[in-house]
Design a protein around this nucleic acid. Structure first.
Lengths: 344, 344
DNA sequence: TTGTAGGCGTTATCAG
DNA sequence: CTGATAACGCCTACAA
């Protein structure tokens, strides 16, 4: 009943434990003949080394972790692929760790470091501000990726790779203003969280303020759900709320493409045409925006490029080539079918 | 530099190692006063127990794992939530393990069992047939969930929870036939894999054959991509191929809603109206189908219910209340905007 | 090239 | 209630 261990293999093969260990770990100093025999026996018996024991003993793990908050976000998929490929090229293992919305990613990281002897960590998604004291405890190199940047960059003593969420959000708002829209509703995340939603709202406000347009609180809709804020359903609900209010608007800007999809559906059901009656703009540049009808105008983040730079930066840090770095990538305003000049 | 361990805590508190261990693990036989003191010190020092060491030693882990193939699939999100909630209620930890498309889920499971001392496993997604010998090695209870069933159920000596993919696929095809469609194109997965795509294609064929309609191979489109077959982009590409061929058709049935979205876009770009010119039907019942315009006719799998039954079944098995069980749930044909009678 | 022995950080056992 | 001490399964000097 009890599990089969390295000892059993050694005994059955009539060799020492270390010989088996050498065979498993591709050590050089072992007779190829012996190795073949041991591997054969391992296959026969279906022996699997215990990872807990290995991690406990091992000093050199060649392993990095990617911690993701919001793994269902299709935005992260290509990033994961890229990071994994690069890690493989460097002969590093990669563990993918899902972090729940309510969990603290730093705490999860701390635990994982001990457990797996990590050499480096990448954080995808999550909050953009962290307790410096907690961060201090992270003794291994780490990079925050696709996480919004704040103003006070100079205070940061860690790496991040991101787009300028506030600036890009302003870019979109400016585009809508340039089209002639004056009453632009925005659908954003609850402001309690230190989330990128907050930065994107700031960008929206920046644009309006710069043109001397007063900010109308009735056009700002905050999603209260904490669990899965960027959903089509929430976009739909918020648009219904907007339609039910007496607020006038000619455009809706949502801080995520998923929200925009829900908004489009609600507008469609209300008999409004997009973009003839109302313009809709999203943010992220995920596939659905391209295949939805109308195709969504959006801000496309260079996800692949950011992922490439992220993993490169992490390895540079691991190899001591750099201490930490901040990279800000330009995002692209993609004008498609869902936006146009207001009025008819 | 070296990590802080339980020994350090013990020394600093002036107690024995086992006392610290008891404090950490909420053992009953410890002076509340001592415990408080120890926990205080742990907090101060930021000590984190090493999971590898714990897993190695522990006999009683109260931990289950959920292995997911295709974690980006929104279809799995509610299932994960439900399983986690139920596990928590039973005071079990749950680890979520992502399995790459090319990985063998059973092999991953085998490794994880050793590493984490799992009490049970749930497989979400993945192939529907496995090597019985491999399965034999899985010494802990496990349930395959939302994985298609094959004909030869009697041979199965393990649990699964699923819908009758073949039957449901036939149901959809019958519905399209009843509407009057005769030339129904189908977009499905590569047949190399032992995937549910195969079962769904069978169901399609069943329906046609039953009505004496000859199966037209030119209307069957197989996606060659192995990596992420059920994508909007693949649906789009396949629809382009279909349009470019000389095959006539009045309806398109895709084995996943994501594919249907891509198909709709391609048809739209070709100037075809849905459903006036062509009907489109999907499968799964994910949110996008509800928010897309036109709303997608689909087969909705009772994901929540299945998840509930899955976790309940697993715990019944863990607790020895049952050996194994097969559950087949009825899926629902959801008729929405994307299908109608053919012709005008 | 191979085997022996010690220890990685914890928990379980058993005596106090 | 508490403290030694022996495993857990493996890797890695070190010795052979």
């Amino acid at each position: 009943m009890s599990e089969i261990t390295i000892k059993d293999i050694a005994r059955e093969c009539g060799v020492g434990i270390s010989t088996v260990s050498r065979a498993i770990n591709n050590h050089a100093d072992i007779n190829p003949e012996t190795k073949r025999m041991v591997m054969q026996k391992i296959k026969e018996t279906g022996y699997i080394p215990n990872n807990s024991a290995r991690n406990l003993k091992r000093t050199d793990a060649r392993c990095i972790a990617v911690l993701i908050k919001g793994i269902t976000n299709p935005f992260f998929s290509p990033a994961i692929q890229i990071v994994e490929a690069q890690a493989q090229k460097k002969r590093y293992a990669m563990v993918l760790q899902h972090v729940e919305a309510y969990e603290d990613e730093i705490a999860v990281a701390l635990e994982l470091i001990k457990e797996k002897r990590l050499r480096g960590i990448i954080f995808l998604g999550g909050a953009y501000q962290h307790d410096p004291e907690q961060l201090e405890k992270l003794k291994v190199p780490f990079v925050f990726s696709t996480i919004g940047i704040t103003q006070d960059e100079e205070k940061k003593t860690y790496s991040n790779v991101a787009v300028d969420d506030r600036g890009e959000s302003r870019k979109m708002t400016d585009y809508l203003l340039d089209l002639g829209h004056k009453k632009i509703a925005i659908i954003t995340e609850s402001m309690e969280a230190q989330s990128i939603g907050k930065l994107r709202l700031e960008g929206y406000k920046d644009a309006l303020t710069a043109r001397g347009i007063e900010i109308d609180e009735r056009l700002i809709f905050e999603i209260s759900e904490k669990q899965e804020p960027y959903s089509m359903e929430n976009g739909y609900k918020m648009a219904k709320k907007l339609l039910a209010s007496d607020a006038e608007f000619t455009a809706v800007f949502t801080i995520a493409d998923f929200l925009a999809v829900g908004v489009c559906r609600a507008l469609h059901e209300a008999g409004l045409r997009i973009p003839e009656d109302v313009s809709v703009a999203g943010y992220d540049g995920i596939p659905i925006g391209e295949f939805y009808t109308p195709q969504l105008t959006t801000i496309r983040q260079p996800a692949e490029l950011m992922a490439e730079k992220t993993i490169k930066l992490l390895f540079d840090m691991i190899e001591g080539k750099t201490k930490y770095e901040h990279m800000v990538f330009p995002a692209e305003l993609v004008v498609r079918e869902s936006t146009a000049k207001p009025g008819r």
